[in-house]
Design a binder for these strands. Structure first.
Lengths: 212, 212
DNA sequence: CGTTAGTTTGAGGTAAGTCAACTCTAGTGG
DNA sequence: CCACTAGAGTTGACTTACCTCAAACTAACG
């Protein structure tokens, strides 16, 4: 493979295919158990990662112990790219998870593939800023369910990968408030809950209207 | 200037100098008055921008009218880079502001310069997620003052570019709550306020301790 | 010096947090 | 296959931090 594969006719480099990221395909899959650390705050940053199966939470904790989950990463998602030498967040597997990683030393060959990856993460972070900065608890939970539905491929029935505490720490709420919001959506016949992880969106439109 | 300037020995491409971004130097400075739109939600995204002087707010508004300022950009900062074809946020000048812009068509020449720019914006967004997701009003205002102090070059005396409403919409608070927090910091002799924009950090350490 | 937008202060209301009890459920072993 | 258990989730009562509404104050402009 050539080190650089520039599509000269390409007008929008941000939309270039991630073909250059193919280097990762040859890498072995590392398996992680539920809760296992992928990288930790303060460590030297040496790798970029891609989720093969399972899920990952990236989070930061304040000295006071409060935790904010910055993002969840599901199958196919890239994470762990940063400017700084040391990690300022931590990443853990949620459930049994497979990860491929490539060394940062190798990333100079795939810049044009990495840019859209980072832009996507950035866009996701901005979306999330709006949710946690300006939406009510019910709106946040509604937005979260829609986001998870989208990531699951747009199906109305899907499973949440994470426990309530992760949802709470992602949305800047408490588990009790998340639970109350879910109950309210259930009682309003907007969603149905199956067991502790299963979700079915019954009234998609109603859920969307909650996020305005 | 060569179209591509790869530093082959460079081990950390994210830390490459932004020399490639020099294309922007030859561009003319566009002047904007206070509140003038630079780009708006829904528009086709055609340019990337760099602040020459003054300041910029990038924000999104919910259908319900609530506004979240995603980031402030000061002299030297780049903004406006995205994956999508259309803007999902808006950008406005704060006070008299000078902006240089380059067309996205030209960005294919400066990928390796753009990556650190986006990573910096991303890092800033993540930091902000933690603040608005998990900190109290007083802690948010303290964090904001430290951030502005840093951006002003680490001086303890500096001027806020923006009115209280912008601070509130950045921190996910109301102007009243921002005002009360500032008053509290003033009464605790942690800061001094001069007029409506001037800030002096008297007790830097105390301010930092508030953000734990 | 007056005007007006921006900011501060105050009083009262409310959404979300806290603490505690209860319930479910998924996993384990009899 | 069912009973038991421990962890996770839900519900309720109460508290609190922030919001809302309203009024007073400042300061920056002509």
């Amino acid at each position: 493979m050539p080190a650089f594969e520039f599509s000269q006719g390409q007008m929008k480099p941000m939309l270039v295919t991630s073909a250059a990221l193919g280097v990762v395909e040859s890498k072995p899959v590392s398996n992680f158990v539920d809760g296992q650390s992928i990288y930790s705050d303060g460590e030297r940053a040496g790798q970029v990662y891609r989720v093969e199966f399972g899920a990952v939470r990236v989070y930061r904790v304040l000295a006071s112990g409060r935790r904010q989950i910055l993002d969840f990463h599901l199958g196919g998602n890239w994470f762990g790219l940063q400017n700084e030498d040391f990690r300022r967040s931590s990443a853990e597997a949620i459930g049994t998870t497979g990860i491929k990683s490539i060394s940062l030393r190798e990333t100079r060959y795939i810049w044009q593939g990495l840019l859209p990856v980072v832009l996507e993460n950035f866009s996701s972070a901005q979306e999330h800023q709006l949710v946690i900065g300006r939406q009510s608890a019910l709106e946040r939970v509604a937005a979260f369910l829609l986001e998870m539905s989208n990531r699951a491929g747009g199906t109305c029935r899907f499973d949440l990968f994470m426990p309530r505490i992760d949802i709470a720490d992602y949305l800047g709420l408490t588990i009790e408030t998340v639970s109350r919001a879910l109950t309210k959506l259930k009682n309003g016949s907007i969603i149905r809950l199956q067991g502790t992880r299963g979700v079915e969106i019954v009234n998609y439109r109603a859920l969307q209207n909650l996020c305005l």
